[in-house]
């Protein structure tokens, strides 16, 4: 092999093994599905963030349906003689179910350094209403 990784050697390897052993399995999510998603909210918006390295905005298809947000696209494979391939390639799709009302016309998406951010504003007109019951 002309070019190889030193998978068996890196500084602090032993510490790393111990660290991994005692660490809760929070990093498991990284290997679950591509692309990984973070979903968060604050007072005004919901945020869906995703790591989609190597994709330009026009290569990502975002669809907002009645009840879900769909992120799909394709990662191309590089041409050449592979020695090692770890990066996921091919078609991907992830569906985020929206069980909450959002302001559909004001949804924005941005892409920076391979991280996609979709901002879904909370619906102002959809705040829960009180219904008064008239006693007959």
């Amino acid at each position: 092999m002309v070019l190889d990784f030193n998978t068996m050697y890196y500084p602090g390897r032993f510490e790393r093994v111990i660290e991994d052993f005692f660490k809760p399995q929070q990093g498991e999510g990284r290997r679950m599905a591509f692309p990984p998603l973070n979903v968060s909210e604050d007072e005004a918006n919901y945020y869906v963030r995703s790591e989609v390295p190597g994709l330009a905005m026009d290569a990502i298809e975002l669809t907002l349906t009645e009840k879900s947000l769909v992120i799909r696209g394709e990662r191309p494979t590089e041409q050449g003689k592979y020695y090692r391939q770890e990066r996921p390639a091919g078609f991907f799709q992830r569906v985020v179910a929206l069980n909450v009302p959002v302001d559909r016309d004001k949804v924005r998406a941005s892409l920076a350094d391979g991280v996609l951010t979709v901002v879904l504003p909370k619906c102002e007109g959809c705040v829960p209403r009180k219904i008064s019951i008239d006693v007959a």
């Binding site: 002309v2 070019l3 190597g54 050449g80 003689k81 020695y83 391939q85 391979g114």
Partner: peptide, 18 residues
């Protein structure tokens, strides 16, 4: 990481989003 070889040398691709 992907490592591959082409006519003009080796190419290394790394996914480092963010």
């Amino acid at each position: 990481t992907d490592i591959l070889e082409r006519e003009d040398g080796f190419y290394v691709y790394m996914d480092i989003p963010g």
